[in-house]
């Protein structure tokens, strides 16, 4: 008995389409790049713009490590095609500090030890920035629920909630 292993595309493979030039405003600066249709915003940031602060933890919208702010809203950059965000304003973890001074959330994450390995941290912080901007979370329960799209395998959740509460108090 034999078994044909890999997935079979339904038709012939098209020649790789031309790369598409796009412009993004990344952390306040204009970034011009050429991407394939299937290049995700995450891969564009990490591989094309060398902004590796945004992390790839699953590439399927299951972990939240890739969270960035697009036009002020938190999204999963792994499930976003770069080409679809032409002209958009993207804020990554690298864009939060101002003139060397940490964003209140960044400082709060350090103060409350809201991370261990650090790999989910960029996504947590960007997600928290989005959460504060949304203004929907007031109680600890609400923060927990609205931060549940960011998995922390090290288990820093209570400290993450405390850090967000500290930053909320300041903003």
């Amino acid at each position: 008995m034999t078994h044909s292993g890999t997935t079979k595309p339904k038709g012939p493979i098209a020649a790789a389409p031309e790369k598409i030039p796009i412009t993004l405003i990344v952390n306040g600066a204009e970034a011009k790049l050429s991407v394939a249709p299937w290049t995700t915003l995450l891969d564009a940031l990490r591989d094309y713009l060398d902004l590796t602060g945004t992390k790839k933890g699953c590439d399927h919208g299951q972990c939240g490590a890739c969270t960035v702010l697009v036009d002020g809203r938190r999204i999963n950059s792994c499930l976003t095609l770069a080409v679809m965000k032409e002209g958009a304003e993207v804020t990554t973890v690298e864009g939060l500090a101002r003139n060397g001074e940490l964003h209140p959330l960044q400082q709060a994450f350090i103060d409350h030890d809201a991370f261990q390995c650090g790999y989910c941290t960029s996504g947590q912080i960007c997600s928290a920035a989005g959460l504060i901007a949304e203004g929907k979370a007031k109680t600890a329960d609400e923060i927990r629920e609205l931060m549940s799209g960011n998995i922390c395998r090290c288990g820093a959740y209570p400290n993450i909630v405390a850090a967000i509460q500290q930053a909320m108090g300041r903003s």
Partner: peptide, 21 residues
């Protein structure tokens, strides 16, 4: 004591194995 590598981790400067371009 707060983590001495805290700043690198909250700013995205800490580089992991797949991030050396």
């Amino acid at each position: 004591t707060s983590r001495v590598d805290g700043r690198a981790k909250v700013t995205g400067e800490a580089k992991y194995a797949g991030e050396f371009n």
